[in-house]
């Protein structure tokens, strides 16, 4: 991998440096399918870039990492271009100083790939309304993560207030394997579900979402209770014939039990951020099921 540092630069200088590098390397940008804008502070930047680069193996992309620095410094833009064998696309780290921290979109805009989707991701703190944020306005899809909020349950509960199509939350993505297993369990006829319980460590945003999705789909009350973890540990749904339960004590292998049938073990591993991100990038259309689930949570809290 080659790395180029540009200090006190501008978007157009970065752009021409990129073109020059590409000619030297002989790799055109045509294969890239999207631009991923990562807005992150210096402390979370390393992990976020790693995950994004990993996800770019499935979705070759230009990754623009926006890192706001000290706003009291004089205005300055520093850029680091990473390019080469280990990265399927291109990674550009943009460090913004002074008033420029408020105008990241002016740097990001000219660096977006032409006529391909833009996805924004806030691995840490996110704006109140991502879709109205200057970076969010550039993006077709906006990924946030309730887990990184100080109070993640509160964060997920507030999501529906300013929801706009294209919003999504990694707390929801983490549930796909659980939801897929639950849906598979319901591929065989199951009686009417009367009530349910989702069990997880305290303050687990995904658990709240899963409960909301289940109650939305099944038309039955689903509670969230606490356990020692790790993460989500169980889902129990009560029907007239007995309980359908999925329990996962070790965060890897789950046991599915249902009335009248033997218990079965299923791999249900917790996925790294890179896989979650890759899943998000697979579909760029609004996720209506997610919307229904977050609306359900806020309704539940009002009543």
């Amino acid at each position: 991998m080659t790395s180029f540092m540009l200090t006190g630069t501008t978007a157009s200088k970065i752009s021409s440096q990129l073109t020059q590098l590409r000619h030297q390397m002989g790799t055109p940008a045509v294969g890239m399918v999207l631009t991923l804008v990562v807005v992150s502070d210096e402390s979370t930047q390393y992990d976020a870039v790693r995950a994004a680069t990993e996800a770019a193996r499935e979705h070759p992309s230009r990754i623009l990492v926006v890192i706001p620095r000290d706003p009291r410094e004089p205005n300055r833009l520093d850029a680091e271009i990473r390019f080469g064998e280990s990265t399927p696309g291109e990674v550009i780290l943009l460090r913004l100083y002074g008033e420029l921290t408020e105008h990241a979109d002016s740097v990001v805009g000219p660096l977006l790939l032409t006529d391909t989707p833009v996805v924004a991701w806030w691995p840490g703190d996110c704006p109140e309304v991502p879709a109205k944020d200057p970076i969010g306005l550039l993006a077709l899809r906006r990924i946030v993560d309730a887990r990184s909020a100080p109070d993640s349950v509160k964060a997920i509960t507030g999501r529906s207030k300013d929801y706009l199509p294209g919003d999504t939350d990694l707390a929801w993505t983490r549930l796909t394997t659980w939801r897929s297993l639950l849906a598979a369990a319901f591929d065989q006829p199951v009686g009417k579900v009367k009530k349910g319980v989702v069990e997880a460590v305290p303050g687990h945003a995904s658990a709240v979402l899963l409960a909301a999705w289940l109650s939305e789909r099944l038309g039955a009350p689903v509670k969230v209770t606490e356990s020692d973890g790790p993460g989500l540990t169980a889902v129990k749904l009560t029907t007239a014939d007995g309980d359908i339960t999925i329990t996962r004590g070790d965060g890897r292998l789950a046991t599915l039990s249902r009335p009248g049938q033997p218990d079965r073990q299923v791999a249900l591993t917790r996925r790294p951020t890179s896989e979650l991100l890759a899943e998000e990038l697979r579909r760029l259309d609004p996720d209506e099921i997610y919307e229904a689930a977050i609306r359900r949570i806020s309704r539940g809290h009002k009543s």
């Binding site: 939801r179 897929s180 639950l182 598979a184 319901f186 289940l214 099944l218 579909r283 996720d287 099921i289």
Partner: peptide, 19 residues
């Protein structure tokens, strides 16, 4: 009607074979 947890708009859920 056959499965309350499935929805054609829920594109995250993969096609999974039955038992």
């Amino acid at each position: 009607e056959s499965n309350p947890l499935r929805d054609p708009r829920d594109k995250r859920l993969p096609r999974v074979a039955g038992p």
